[in-house]
């Protein structure tokens, strides 16, 4: 009877090891994604190096679902640049073009006015109540690169959470059941 118990024991330990390996490899995938994201944050100097265009206000240049690569250098903001900015009281950042810049002589502070290429008026209606200009601290980054369509993945996932859970579930299942 001893050898049966021994073999059961060996199978059980094998399964536990297998399970542990799978958990570790899953953790590696998650952490390497995190490392890439944080690394990009360091290189670009922007708190979100990649943004997805959510509205049509910059059409036909940027359509909904396109992605933009941001860079936040020390260079001052100038008219014509496409910047991503936060408005107090709004959660979602906005991607629009700078049309007016006033830079102070002594402090170097800037007043910035933006506008979407596809909008009729400037952005003062989008800013916080009574706000006439954006300052440097509102700016999250300026757009330097462009890739079409890729952002649809995140748009679909945020708007249809079921697809997100299905995808995560399927991937998790795949990782846990895979033999290699």
């Amino acid at each position: 009877m001893g050898w049966i118990g021994e073999s059961v024991e060996s199978i059980r330990s094998l399964q536990i090891r297998h399970l542990l390996t799978q958990i570790v490899s899953l953790g590696m995938i998650v952490t390497s994604a995190l490392i890439i994201w944080k690394g990009l944050m360091c290189i670009t100097g922007s708190e979100s190096p990649v943004v997805v265009v959510l509205s049509g206000s910059m059409e036909p240049g940027f359509k909904r679902g396109d992605i933009l690569f941001l860079h936040m250098s020390k260079d001052p903001i100038r008219a014509g640049e496409i910047v991503v900015f936060h408005v107090d009281g709004r959660e979602i950042p906005i991607v629009h073009r700078v049309i007016k810049v006033h830079e102070r002589q002594d402090t170097g502070e800037v007043d910035i006015l933006t506008k979407g290429d596809n909008n009729f008026g400037d952005d003062r209606l989008l800013y916080a109540h009574g706000q006439l200009w954006l300052q440097q601290h509102h700016i999250m980054g300026r757009a330097v690169g462009f890739l079409p369509y890729v952002g649809w993945v995140t748009i679909i996932m945020t708007e249809k959470p079921i697809i997100k859970y299905l995808l995560i579930g399927a991937l998790g299942l795949l990782v846990i059941t895979s033999k290699e």
Binding site: K100, H102, R104, Q105
Partner: peptide, 26 residues
């Protein structure tokens, strides 16, 4: 596409740089 715009640029005692977009087009 190419986005093109004309801006007036000048210096004042208060501001080191003023850029005011006057016209733009796609």
């Amino acid at each position: 596409q190419v986005f093109v715009f004309v801006a007036a640029e000048y210096e004042t005692p208060q501001n080191a740089l003023n850029q005011v977009s006057l016209w733009d087009g796609i």
